[in-house]
Amino acid sequence: MPEETVPWHAESPDPAEAIRERSVLLKLSYRLLGSLADAEDAVQETYIRWHRLSDEGRDNITNPRAWLIRTASRIGLDMLKTARARRERYVGEWLPEPVPVANGWSSQEASTVVDPADRVSLDDSVSMALLVVLETMTPAERVAFVLHDVFRYTYPEIADVVGRTPAACRQLASSARRRVRAERRTPVRPAEHAAAVRAFRSAWQAGDLAALVEALDPDATAIIDGGGLVSATLAPLHGPAAIASFFLGVWDRQPDLAVGEEIVNGEPGLIATDRQGRTLAVLALATTDTGRISHVWVVRNPRKLDAWRWSPTAPDR
């Protein structure tokens, strides 16, 4: 069973090795919060609380991993509650913070036998599409869903985090699951998704309006997150014509822009850089079973691009 999916009651490491759980805590916190910066803060606070315990207090914790995960989950729940008010004041559209490549953010599926219709793998759970859906959930729904459907924890264990009964936690996860199912689309093979992303990129770079419109689904939408710090549309763009015109306008205003292919949240995406290789935007895209782009999520807020500050794969000029 992968490290991330070890139940809380499983054998745990020696307390002196608790720091080694940081990777698990970061993966959990990112899925709970949709922000790598917030996830880092949550993990740091978790360890602060761990080190504030007396030596006797730590020695009395029979399962350090369980304590750390439970504490990080509670911190994440509290942060989600305050984040709602903060995001209401956000300038324009808010998007989750993108992360590079799948390495460190995904894993093999748990060995627990679960109905495929009722589970989300760790690979799927880091996709921008799912993270956007998670933003529509209440804090308690999100925590219950992530802990149960992604990390395979039991409802009694989740109840200990959210302060509700196991039955209530089951209802929270069920409600969250319905939201996910409502947004779920026909799966697209990775090669088809990559081809659609490549077609979008080629049309954009060529300045070909007709080809760019053709690459987009008739019901396509685009969201650009600038956070009020850089230029961005304040409302979603709807339809191929509006989206294509926007992206070609970007190209006209910045002709030295370079667009390369990157793995964004575990799936093929795009990264836009300037002449020095500095990242200006990260694009995550979703594809329909017709081979066209249905969603474009563009993160331009520089505070969300720390993990992408410089692109080692910036295209040659």
Rank of each mutant, 00 (worst) to 15 (best):
V99L: 02
H51C: 05
E93M: 14
V146P: 10
S35E: 15
S54Q: 03
H51E: 13
A66E: 11
T82E: 12
Y155R: 01
V150L: 04
A144T: 08
R58V: 12
D160F: 02
W105V: 10
D115L: 13
S107G: 06
R87Q: 10
E97L: 06
A140Q: 10
T165A: 05
I158L: 04
V99G: 01
A168G: 00
W50T: 04
E93A: 11
D124F: 12
A129W: 08
R86E: 12
V120L: 15
A140G: 04
I61W: 02
P116F: 09
V91M: 02
I61N: 01
R142K: 10
V143F: 07
V113G: 05
S106T: 15
E40A: 09
P64Q: 02
R84A: 06
R152E: 09
P166K: 00
Q108K: 09
P98E: 06
E135D: 15
V162Y: 00
A168D: 10
R170H: 06
H148V: 10
L95C: 06
R74S: 09
A37I: 14
M137C: 08
V133Q: 09
V161F: 04
N103R: 12
W67R: 00
A144C: 10
W50F: 02
L95N: 03
I61T: 05
A167Q: 07
